[in-house]
Design a protein around this nucleic acid. Structure first.
Lengths: 123, 123
DNA sequence: GGGTATAGTTACTTTTCGGTGCCTATATCA
DNA sequence: TGATATAGGCACCGAAAAGTAACTATACCC
């Protein structure tokens, strides 16, 4: 994933995906999107247990570089750092909301399918 | 990326991202979304020059497994296979459209930034 | 006969991603 | 005294992802 200053895209969606394409990015953004106000690093880590500290930091850095989120450091010990969506990040809100909505539907449908007695696969 | 039948998610968006999370998937879906009617494999390949045949096939298979797209094989030689969004895939339409829209904005903003004479970086 | 187009599959190699462990600094608390 | 919480850096290594190349089948065209 090269992070160039400029490049050309075949379709505009490619630009979006270049910014949001990391494995954890959309998930992180969803967490920053749901519930108001900034979130601490440790909060995010607890919300996404599968992510490692390294990956979390890395993805947050890239999102910050791309201007999607803002990072605020409180000069205190132990350290406190919070992240929140920037204006540009907020402009992704409806996409993030829809990822959640679609997921809800999808889960519901899946469960219906696998519980449907008509389709039991063995025996 | 394990492809399990069932699992639990911390937030619904995770379910969405499990289905759409592949490197090329959203891009492929955007191409199937823009312009009506099904698209041939070779069309997709030409639309996404960077993707390899192998990746294209693989991602299409997974999207098909997840019920997002439909694959139709014409029994002829040379072979003809077309892909189109399924009903479930069409339910992603507004997400796909927004990925494009957001990308347009983002590109415009980037270009504005880099062309803004106030901010020329050297000389 | 030989080349082309089409949609793959497979084996092999390379590259990248992501995980693990170890390190910093310091205020607070036991 | 020393453990804890916090945010993160860095080096190393294995696993997984992605790229490469060769192969299939066959109708059509020259």
């Amino acid at each position: 994933m090269e992070r160039q200053a400029t490049r050309t895209f075949n379709i505009p969606a490619e630009a979006t995906l270049e910014v949001l394409g990391g494995k954890w990015k959309l998930l992180i953004l969803c967490h920053l999107n749901c519930g108001p106000g900034p979130k601490r690093t440790s909060e995010l880590k607890r919300s996404i247990p599968e992510i490692t500290q390294k990956m979390l930091t890395q993805q947050l850095r890239e999102l910050e570089e791309d201007g999607i989120i803002m990072r605020t450091v409180y000069n205190q010990v132990p350290p406190k750092v919070v992240y929140e969506l920037s204006e540009l990040g907020i402009s992704l809100k409806s996409i993030l909301d829809q990822l959640s909505e679609w997921g809800e539907q999808y889960i519901r449908q899946r469960e219906w399918k696998s519980n449907c007695p008509e389709r039991s696969q063995n025996a």
